[in-house]
Design a protein around this nucleic acid. Structure first.
Length: 343
DNA sequence: GGTCCACAGGAAAGATAGGGTC
DNA sequence: GACCCTATCTTTCCTGTGGACC
């Protein structure tokens, strides 16, 4: 086996293997791209775009396509602003508004402690610059859904909303807000088929790895194991390439590919776990260890492990968050309820 | 059928943290 | 440094639901 220092690096462009990479050409989503472009087209005439809702399971390219479409728009329209807001991280009204203002450089004199959130909205309302496209990713995590109504009414501002389940987003909206979004363009994203995922991976291999590093059988194996989730597939490809390179190999053998798939799935899950608070992580840890556990046992075990335990009500909030992000799953009602890990 | 109890989740109030102003 | 204001987090209180038991 050649030493690592003797071999040419197999990764020619690591950016291509990153989950946040937006390719120059998106394949197998022509229908969805067309629908988003049509919704955004009014912007080319200086008008507000139609509100667009992208929904579907994780890893099907919703965020990628939203960003890709706004990039394409930037090439067509000289004067335009865009901003991506992750509502998991910026889930409060203040933070979301702050992030939106950040996209038009209006946050230098805004302070959490002294600027009322009403003033943030006023600033956005007063915005009279070029058309502004805001992508609200994971919009179902937004605490104050009335904000959608407020943003909807801002001229020069167009919304692209991204969620796993569009019904969940609008389930608890009052009629006034709900009616505004009835006419929005809704685009459903289905999981990629095996052939589609294979083609996506092949494109990444072509631009990200040196020739002959991985064969078509290896690519197809990753695509099969990813089960329609491009995020897992690209992660597995990245992991396999990295592991093979660390071993000083010039190609990626099948045993490394097979090991990379569960590792990539674990990495995807770990990224979500890392975003949890310490208390949320303790709950997740207990459920992972126990496999299946009743609420009362879970609360008791949590109390044992934490110095300053939160109230049961707070833990229920945490648990619903864990469930929403498919880290855990609950089954049964009232007394028969249990929590278990998501498989 | 009535009662009890575990549980989920909404609403409102309280506590806390961070930063500005004087 | 004390006070004030604000966003955010947490707790408290409450209601509704559904299974278990008599």
């Amino acid at each position: 086996m050649p030493l690592a220092c003797d071999v040419i690096p197999m990764i020619s462009d690591a950016r291509v293997l990153q989950p946040e990479f937006i390719p120059n050409e998106v394949i197998h989503r022509n229908g969805e791209i067309g629908a988003i472009s049509a919704a955004l087209r009014p912007i080319t005439r200086g008008e507000q775009a139609e509100t667009t809702i992208l929904h579907g399971p994780t890893g099907v390219g919703k965020t990628c396509l939203a960003k890709y479409s706004t990039q394409q728009l930037r090439e067509e329209v000289l004067d335009i602003n865009t901003q991506h807001v992750n509502c998991w991280e910026d889930h409060t009204r203040f933070r979301t508004l702050h992030r939106i203002l950040d996209g038009i450089s209006q946050t230098t004199d805004i302070h959490r402690s002294s600027t009322p959130k009403d003033e943030l909205l006023e600033r956005i309302r007063d915005y009279d610059g070029p058309q502004y496209v805001v992508i609200l990713d994971e919009v179902d995590q937004l605490e104050d859904k009335d904000l959608l109504y407020d943003l909807y009414r801002v001229s020069n501002l167009s919304l692209i909303l991204i969620a796993n389940d569009d019904e969940e987003v609008f389930a608890n909206l009052d009629d006034r807000v709900y009616s505004r979004f009835l006419s929005a363009t809704r685009i459903k994203f289905d999981p990629y088929s095996l052939d589609e995922l294979t083609a996506i991976l092949s494109a990444r291999v072509e631009y990200g790895l040196r020739d002959g590093v991985i064969d078509s059988e290896g690519i197809r194996h990753i695509a099969e194991a990813a089960r329609g989730d491009a995020r897992v597939a690209i992660g597995a490809l990245r992991t396999a390439a990295r592991n093979a390179q660390q071993e000083g190999l010039t190609t990626i053998p099948m045993d490394i590919i097979e090991g990379a798939v569960p590792e990539a799935k674990s990495e995807v899950k770990q990224k979500t776990v890392d975003k949890l608070t310490a208390d949320q992580q303790v709950l997740y840890e207990i459920i992972t260890e126990e496999g299946e556990i009743s609420p009362s046992d879970l609360y008791a075990e949590y109390d044992k492990r934490v110095e300053q335990p939160k109230t049961r009500r707070m833990l229920r909030n945490y648990l619903s968050k864990l469930e929403h992000y498919k880290l855990i799953v609950s089954s049964g009602n009232t007394r028969g309820r249990t929590y278990s890990t998501y498989s």
